[in-house]
Nucleic acid binder design. Structure first.
Lengths: 106, 106
DNA sequence: CCTGATTACTTCACCTGTTGGAGTAATACT
DNA sequence: AGTATTACTCCAACAGGTGAAGTAATCAGG
């Protein structure tokens, strides 16, 4: 199991990547990450909600109240154009980091 | 140019990877990183020496005084068996992180 | 209509690793 | 003696992740 700490700096990007495929909310995004990685990565709640706050503050996502099925009403998030731009920058950075680290750890 | 911050958590591993190919010292390791990455990554002095301290404290590297050609005498570093083991763990973690992030940023 | 379960967050204090700026130490060169 | 070069060293600040604990809203069962 990977720690969020090893993913530091890319948690925000993961969230944006998921939102780029459609609006969603906290719990669901957490589950989606877990599912897509086949349990290799489970983002912690505190890490996830801290990410939402940062992303909101920077204008990369917008929040709006969602429907309720059972329990507390959800807050849905939508990626903004600025968020898409930021994601593109992060993806590019990721490719560079990957290349650089691979030069040493192989 | 990549920031050390984007490399956070892997700077220690880079240093160990370089030391695994032979003992070396601060300045030289810094230059080696820059050279191998074709100027894509320049680790900052403070980051590098902070890494040495951490690695020493954890018993992953040993320090010993080296020869002098010009200027202050160098401190050489040698990787320890524990350091090699740690590097192996980090390399494995890196592969997982790479796989996970790639699931989202592609 | 009260209780407990479920879903969905929220707060807080702490920790680790990176940063910029400035300073120090030892030696060689002129 | 003074300057350049090499090689660190210290420090306070900051960002992002962490664990533990707490809160809030809704629904289902008795």
């Amino acid at each position: 199991m990977i720690s969020s700490d090893a993913m530091r700096g890319y948690n925000d990007a993961l969230v944006l990547a998921i939102l780029q495929q459609g609006d969603s909310y906290g719990y669901k995004i957490g589950k989606e990450i877990r599912k897509r990685t086949h349990d290799q990565y489970m983002i912690r709640e505190t890490t996830l909600y801290a990410a939402f706050n940062r992303l909101s503050k920077n204008g990369y996502i917008d929040a709006y109240p969602g429907d309720v099925t059972n329990g507390k009403p959800r807050t849905y998030y939508r990626i903004t154009p600025r968020g898409r731009a930021f994601l593109a920058v992060k993806a590019e950075e990721w490719h560079q980091v990957k290349h650089v680290v691979d030069l040493f750890l192989n």
